[in-house]
Design a protein around this nucleic acid. Structure first.
Lengths: 340, 340
DNA sequence: ATGAAAGCGCTAACAA
DNA sequence: TTGTTAGCGCTTTCAT
């Protein structure tokens, strides 16, 4: 940590030209080659680097975008963050990570705090939504892009997780499973509600007619909660497949199956959702519905970038389709590899 | 996105008092109750919220701290980020995530960019280090805390990963393994070098005298690289245990073992390092050396917080001790659970 | 092409 | 306790 930094004024004095010319020269806008040369040299000698705060105050742009989620430790959000950073950084934007908290109220607070003008835009993926949040987002002083359920008049990047659950159910039917369990997370969350809707719709479909379907709800979208819910669900017996609302729950269910001596996929086929790294390396490899987390992050970042650019376009609502990635946890012919 | 926000001046006019009084009233410093009341009311009516940029310019503090790593997708760094955010947010600090890139040069650039004054401090965990980086950090215009190898005259939070490898080796000897393989990542990285040193020291120890030890180097600290290195190592045969330089490599090694028909821990005991979530849910549960990632993040955040506060203290070098977490991948009596 | 000067929103030193 | 005023570092009119 050394002495305080050189300012533009000092560079100007050093170069023996005006402040305005110095600024112009450094930006290459309307300055003679000689001037540019002179100023560049002076700046270099002083080790000048422009002050972001002064610049921001004047330009009314911070070159920062916030990304807010409830739990930055969740692999899905990590993927989004990575993608967002990859898009934004090359454009000179910094990424500020923030927490929405678990409640709508705290998310509303977060959105309101944008009034302090520390970022030019926000990408947020709220776990829970209500009218106050929608209104807060509409009133927000900077562009907000929601990753999640599309909201009226608000830019969003969504995916159809309900249809995604449908994909999983269809796949299980196709490989001959008939008695399905569904392990969902909390129903009062946006993803929880959507996935439940998806499961109910899929099992109400004529194609599923007459088969068995039941739901067990986990307290949270975690492995531990999945394990507990899995135990409750499987203890009742009679299932040959479980659809889990995300990969972490799926892994919990597989552990519960193991405790009961059930093999996966032999006795029980299991599907997850989100297609996370963890599901890829897990044994058995987890069949999962990809919701394109990285892609959603990428699109959301592109969208804010548009908005902060100028952005009087109409509301943008992008969508990323779900797709199934089949792995061992739903393999048709179960060849146990561990035998020896 | 609504019309532009109210400024302090407008609040002052509305309240019919001076700008300074308004500022003071809002901060509760030296203002009469009546004044506070009046100003509060005016601010509320206008929906005023203070502008972070104006404030920063004046106070010369941004209330932001940067966290920079090579790969924000790595679970270890995610844990650090989470911990850092948890410490900093309650103190009113925002966290900006940045990338060091893969090379020392890009990390140096990152540190130099702090000259733009967009953060009050930096927590960085460099993959590679050299004199130019050390010098850049020393010259940095804001406090920098390094998570990694302690560097002369620089605040740091370190851990002894070499000793950590020693813990793993000792544990394997204790459970009767005698022919050890070591799968390390790139040697030109700080962690790679330290872990190699740890393995070499542990296997040179008298306690290990006469036993077998060999090293295989992976291209990267990933599952895929671990799988490839594991194949090469295990193809040569004759090992009863493998120490991996991190959890991802360990999982790769276990997969390689599976391909060769080796059971874990029956035929081959495997240890990882970092004690990540992924190792906890993996089957078999992965024995791993915890390096206290979250704790290191927490301490680093506390350290920058101190520094940005005032911070003319001497150089601070905190350390977090490694400890072994034993799970099934090194179980003594291997009871195969999958049998059925 | 260059210079002079205003002003972004805020806090703090100083005066009253 | 309150008001007046300077100024943080920068970009950008406006005049030359």
């Amino acid at each position: 940590m050394s002495s305080s930094r050189a300012t533009l004024i000092q560079v100007a004095e050093r170069a023996g030209v005006s402040l305005a010319s110095t600024s112009r020269a450094l930006h290459g806008t309307g300055a003679s080659p000689a001037m540019v040369e002179r100023v560049r040299a002076a700046a270099a000698e002083l080790g000048y680097s422009p002050d972001a705060t002064g610049r921001s105050l004047r330009m009314k742009r911070t070159f920062q975008v916030a990304f807010a989620v409830a739990d930055i430790g969740n692999p899905v959000y990590v993927e989004m963050l990575t993608a967002i950073h990859e898009v934004l950084a090359p454009h000179g934007y910094r990424v500020v990570v923030m927490s929405t908290g678990q409640t709508v109220a705290s998310t509303v607070d977060l959105v309101r705090s944008l009034g302090s003008g520390f970022v030019d835009g926000l990408v947020v993926s709220p776990l829970r939504t209500d009218d106050t949040l929608v209104e807060a987002i509409r009133q927000a002083p900077v562009p907000v892009v929601v990753i999640g359920r599309p909201l009226d008049g608000i830019d969003s990047v969504s995916t159809d997780s309900a249809a995604g659950i449908g994909l999983a159910v269809a796949h299980l039917l196709e490989i001959g499973r008939r008695r399905l369990g569904f392990v969902n997370g909390p129903l009062d969350t946006t993803p929880g509600a959507a996935r439940q809707r998806g499961f109910d719709a899929a099992t109400a479909d004529p194609a599923f007619a007459g088969e068995h379907a039941e739901t067990e709800r986990a307290d949270d979208f975690t492995v531990t909660a999945g394990l507990e819910a899995g135990r409750r669900l499987l203890a009742r017996g009679g299932l040959d497949a479980v659809v889990a609302a995300n990969d972490l729950l799926a892994i919990g269910v597989i552990r519960a199956a193991g405790e009961l001596g059930l093999t996966v996929p032999g006795d029980l086929a299991v599907t997850g959702m989100d297609d996370t790294e963890i599901g890829k390396v897990f044994r058995p490899g987890l069949t999962s519905v990809s919701l394109g987390s990285a892609e959603r992050g990428r699109l959301a970042a592109l969208l804010v970038l548009d908005r902060v650019g100028d952005g009087a376009e109409p509301v943008q609502q992008a969508a990323v389709g779900p797709h199934l990635v089949v792995r061992e946890s739903t393999a048709v012919a179960s060849k146990e590899k561990s035998a020896r």
